[in-house]
Amino acid sequence: MAADGARQWWIRPAIRLGAAALLPVAVPAVITGLIWALPGDPASLICPPEICSGTEQLAARWNLDQGPVHFFLSWLSDAASGDFGKSWRIQQGSPVTPLLLTAIPHTAALVGLALSLLLAGALGAATRVLPARADSLLSAVGLIPTVVMSLAAAAAVSINYGASAFDAEAVRVKILLGALALGLADSALAGAARGVRSIFESERQRRYVQMGILRGEGVLSNAWPNAAPAIAGQMRARTLHLLSGAVVVEVVLQIEGLGDLLWSGTLAQDFGVVLAATFGFALLSGSLLLAQAAVEIAVAMHVRRSPPVREVAA
């Protein structure tokens, strides 16, 4: 059985690596199917057939006239050469690529800063530097929804910066405040600390850890290999949750990010923007999968390199 388990350690990481490679194509494909199902279509929104005779022509221009598969494949072949087309509605006539290039760093900074906060909290909980009694305070702060924190931040920025709210300095302030909102609100930090704490507390109870402590070893070094996959899974889930929350933060704080593009693009049925932003999103998700797979591989390697358990003679 142990041999089977040893042989099968690579399955999960392999699935993750495979998924990471497929995501930049698979996720836009799924999203194409979803937005295609929305009532109406972009051509009809701009040229309603009841009052405008060019609807079909516009649909043909935008590859909307031969079904979602044709549309997606056309988009894919253009995207492969770096052409993400133009925005049809949210910034009509503007090429999508520059929008994406502006959005990705903003979202990465926003989510990255929020994630740093979560990782710090998780590490603190794992090492007990962050005491258990701090969880109540974090939970209390976490009661505030992201949208409320973001609204307060947006009001403060608007009133203080006014028309300069889109200058570089104001954008940095918005990203910082948005990251705080993302990290603290919606029980994000509280959940991360509690979740990691519960995993490590559960590991601390185990005999192998207690034996390690008796040997003078650290808790973290003993428990980490066992806990790492679960924590990696948890952190990945929390990061994806942060990416979802980033939509709210970016819309409320008016940050030009992937979430904002996704949200406005979906509402306006600006397919080019949605697919490009989804592609960007898939890249971020794929990188998370890669990170998770790397952790699992590292843990498996660590286990394989550890001294083998010797059978005690009867």
Binding site: R12, I15, R16, G18, A19, L22, L23, A26, V27, V30, I31, L34, I35, A37, L38, P39, R236, A237, L240, L243, S244, V247, V248, G259, L262, W263, T266, L267, V274, A277, T278, F281, A282, S285, G286, L289
Partner: peptide, 23 residues
């Protein structure tokens, strides 16, 4: 199940939720 789970987990949730809400 893991493969499907990875794909589901990687979807932009707010977009999916918004589409469901609009449908």
């Amino acid at each position: 199940v893991a493969a499907v789970g990875e794909l589901l987990g990687a979807l932009p949730r707010m977009v999916v939720v918004l589409v469901v809400a609009l449908l």
